[in-house]
Design a protein around this nucleic acid. Sequence first.
DNA 1: AGACATCTGGACCGATCGGTCCAGCCCCGC
DNA 2: GCGGGGCTGGACCGATCGGTCCAGATGTCT
Lengths: 180, 180
Amino acid sequence: MNAPTNRDTLLRCAATLLRQKGYDGVGLAEILSASGLPKGSLYYHFPGGKRELATAATLCTGAAIQRLIDRAFADADSFATGAAALARAIAALIPPGGPVQACPVASILQASGQEPALRDAARQVMNDWAACLAAHATRLGHAAPQDAADLLLMQMEGAWLLALAEQSPRPLERLAALKT
Amino acid sequence: MNAPTNRDTLLRCAATLLRQKGYDGVGLAEILSASGLPKGSLYYHFPGGKRELATAATLCTGAAIQRLIDRAFADADSFATGAAALARAIAALIPPGGPVQACPVASILQASGQEPALRDAARQVMNDWAACLAAHATRLGHAAPQDAADLLLMQMEGAWLLALAEQSPRPLERLAALKT
DNA sequence: AGACATCTGGACCGATCGGTCCAGCCCCGC
DNA sequence: GCGGGGCTGGACCGATCGGTCCAGATGTCT
């Protein structure tokens, strides 16, 4: 059955709350009450405390989004159509009634100035995404794969930020439309 | 001499610290000690407390950046060259040795889920920028000014975010180069 | 000089923060 | 039956959070 362990629950709740309120915006108490677990569990599974939990959650979500990238580009016949599919996929992540959640990297970036561990995690996820996009660009025969990948990453992050600002998937859908 | 009032000092310090640590990341004590003023002054000039100070500081910085946009596009002969100039101008804001500061809007966006006042401020600044960019696109005879403005805003915000992640102006310079 | 409005200085408050610590439950192999 | 990790439950801690309040310094009128 592969029942989710308490550690997984902690990661999941932390990831969600982090993306909603940012690193400094969530308290441990909030994460704990959302997961229904006591403090002891947290510090057993993540001895490094909030820092460790947040970095682990970010890396986890980052990997999930990379899978989303791969899936979007899997049956694309060009980089542009893959990019449009990706934008639509990210837009589709937004729960219909619920709040728009930030990009996991963006959500810890503000606090990364004080927390080297967070900055490393943010950097690594970004680099992974960029490399992944560049690989797809190369595979699809793009003339300047590195440029295309970096530019798309900028556009995607920007659109995600705008979506957060206006609490609507529209900017992401807009980007998808502009890519066609 | 137009000496800066204490209110101005408060706004300036708050703007800087907000962009470095985010809304939830700065404490009033920190802003106060940076400005060398007591709590009484803050709550006299900004009875709404942290919320009011942060929204005022964001609107202020937002307006300053809009002036930067106007300046960058002032002597541009096309939307693309204006865009490149703007990216370079934002990159130039980054203090050589110091930390990369976030976009003022991005820095309050995470907390805007809990603070309607912040979300309104973020939205307004974004809308102003978009309108401003669209006006320049129209003026310079772009075929689809709205699309161009929105896309550029996405790219600029994304590049700014990447710059924050790798603590270097390179993504912004990269965007400027790709625009040429 | 005296009265009034403006602004500052800082003590103080309850709530919440992240983090520590340990008693004890539970389930395992013996 | 029993011993011993793996894990949980939660009391507790000092620090810091945003916010309140007011005495009094300062400037500006009449």
